[in-house]
Simulated scan of single mutants.
Amino acid sequence: MQSERFFGGFMIIDNTSYRSQSFESRVCFLVMHYTVSNFQRSVAELTEPFSVSVQYVVPDPTDPSYVAAGFSGVRIFNLVDEQNRAYHAGVSSWRGRTNLNDTSIGIEIVNTAHDGEHGEIIFVPYNPEQIQAVIELAKDILQRYPTIVPINVVGHSDIAPLRKSDPGPLFPWYELYKAGIGTWYEEDTKARYLQQYALSGIDPRDVLKKLGKFGYDVSAATDADGTKALLRAFQMHYRPAKYDGVLDTETAAILAALVEKYC
């Protein structure tokens, strides 16, 4: 059935007779965040004019401020339409693309991670119901946007490692992977590279090259601090048991296994 628009008796747009096959969706990335605030403060910050914004917010159903707002269970809130650009990624880069606000959908997960007494981040576990809601939401998004390939499901710290730590090492990336969301390495491939590096050692230049090939922006790794931040971001995603930013054989083996699988 043809769809035509008329103005003043004259047809001005025919969008059915000819359709181009050369295009792609604006949306290529799915970015996970945490809010560092309770539900009430998170929503207030995300709905202020001229402030940060995001497409979706997933609350913690046990958050007292969420319960006080009259909600129960996990209700997912859509704050910005998917076709619109939200301001959640900031200065960012992944696989050669920058300014990822232009090409991404963001999910903010209510979580009260906060700074400790000595400047360290105190990471807070996620609620299992909350994570299940994130999984269902992400699966729905990925079904509608096949341009978001697995390697383009990332954390804020992946796309801005010098500035960000969210969604943090307690975010269950492997659980998401088992549900068909994002990337993970094969254990046997990791074991093979562990054996190889145990014999040959690790070349830091090769590790940086592989990080860049996988998707990370390695341009900031010009000094020890930049390199440490980059490795820490990778470890929080794929080796959360130890995320000190120090290059070791396990980190190198996991990276090599990921590059072999996805690149």
Rank of each mutant, 00 (worst) to 15 (best):
F214E: 02
G180N: 11
M236K: 12
K213C: 09
K178A: 08
G215C: 00
A191V: 01
Y185F: 15
A191H: 12
A179K: 12
K190P: 00
V218M: 07
K210W: 08
G215H: 01
V218A: 04
P240F: 01
S200T: 14
L230H: 07
G180A: 00
L231Y: 12
V218I: 09
L176W: 04
L230E: 04
Q196S: 13
D225Y: 13
L176Q: 04
G180I: 08
R192E: 14
A224P: 12
G201D: 08
W184K: 09
G180K: 12
D223T: 09
P204G: 02
T222P: 01
K213F: 01
E175P: 05
M236N: 02
Y243W: 09
T249K: 13
L199H: 14
L199N: 14
A198W: 10
L176I: 01
K178T: 08
E175C: 07
K210Q: 14
I181L: 04
D188G: 05
L231T: 06
K190G: 01
D223F: 03
E175D: 12
Q196C: 06
L194F: 03
E175V: 08
Q195L: 13
V246F: 10
L231H: 07
K178I: 04
Y243P: 00
I181R: 03
D244F: 02
G226V: 00
D188A: 14
Y193R: 09
G182E: 02
D217M: 03
V207E: 00
W184D: 12
S200P: 00
D225K: 14
I202N: 04
K190V: 10
V218K: 13
R205G: 11
E187N: 12
Y238L: 00
Y197Q: 08
Y174A: 08
R205I: 03
R232T: 07
T189L: 15
T222F: 11
V246G: 10
L211Y: 04
T249I: 12
A221W: 00
K213D: 07
E187Q: 15
K228D: 02
E186D: 15
L176F: 06
G226Q: 05
K228T: 06
D223M: 03
D203L: 10
V218H: 11
D188F: 13
S219H: 12
D223P: 08
A221Q: 01
H237K: 15
K210N: 09
G212V: 04
I202M: 08
G182K: 03
A233L: 02
K178V: 01
A198E: 13
T227S: 08
T189D: 09
D206M: 15
D244M: 07
V218N: 11
L199E: 15
A198I: 01
W184A: 01
R232H: 05
F234S: 02
K178C: 07
V246N: 13
G201N: 10
G182S: 06
R205W: 11
H237G: 00
K210R: 15
I202P: 02
G212T: 00
L211M: 15
D225P: 06
T183Y: 03
L230I: 06
A220W: 00
S219K: 13
E186I: 05
A220P: 07
W184L: 01
Q235D: 03
A179V: 04
Y193P: 01
A179E: 13
D248T: 06
A221E: 06
G180Q: 10
P240R: 10
D223H: 11
K213W: 07
K242N: 14
W173L: 08
S200C: 10
V207D: 02
K213N: 10
R205M: 10
